[in-house]
Amino acid sequence: MAISFTRIGLLAKKQFIDNKKLYLFGVLAMMGIMGAIFSLFLITGTNLGKENQAVYLLLGLVVFGGLYTLTLFSNLENTKGRTLSLMLPATATEKLICAFVYGAILFPLAYLLCVYPLLRFTIFIDNKFMGHFTSPYVFDEHRAQLFLITAFFLIQAQILLCSLFFKHYKAVKSIVFICVMFFGTLIIYTKIIGYILPGRIDKTAVVEERYYKNNNLFKTDTVKRHLTTNTRIINLFTAVKYYGDQRDVSLELTRKQKNVFFLLPYLTIPCMWLISWVRLKEMEVN
């Protein structure tokens, strides 16, 4: 697999020059929408706390990043436009690397450069004129923020895949695809974890005590019992198992198991890029 950085550079240059107007209007639209969202806080007098800042900033990244990703291979949308793009002397790998550079590196940078100053400006106004004492959001390693950032890459990989597979109504189909993937994963996880958790407790020995009629202890047995129970999933990794006699046992996955379930969706990111590459190769000779 020959990769030429010169050709990647040429592809990147072509991508920028061919889409210059779209990018300019896109940046203006993005700043306008985010500015409007931030100013809503000022108008309503709601405090733009750190958590709100993080959520809106990162949600914007996910949404606008997704929309942007849809445009990365727009030149392959129809047969008319496709031929000239596919005939460019560059490999599918180089084209995908170029898309990765734009989608996963340059877009987040451009987004932060455009939207973060807007956020800081809003905070400045909030503090200066609205009487709040809000400190600006700075990225930290809080789990929720990490989750949103990784969600961006996950959603982006899914949208890129959709943009190469679907010819019409790409945005709608991509949203449906992401929903199916998300809820599908949730259902499968719930089933698997629901299966794992009760299985663990069923193997646990139950101590059974037997008594005489005068309540004196007759004997103590350790037996394995399969009790008729109800299990309620609290969240993906925790469940409560209710026994008939009002007892309940809280169950939780081990850290190792949790890590596996956490990592699995992110392992699909390289898989999706790989499938996108295969699809791109397929489009070249089909």
Binding site: A2, S4, R7, I17, D18, N19, K20, K21, N75, N78, T79, K80, G81, T83, L84, M87, L88, P89, A90, T91, A92, E94, E284, V285
Partner: peptide, 24 residues
């Protein structure tokens, strides 16, 4: 041709019947 080596692609040009050009 179907191996689509870039060196090969540099030496062949197809002008299709219909095409879309960027607005530049």
């Amino acid at each position: 041709p179907f191996e689509r080596n870039p060196i090969f692609l540099q030496e062949i040009y197809l002008l299709p019947e219909e095409f879309d050009l960027p607005n530049v």
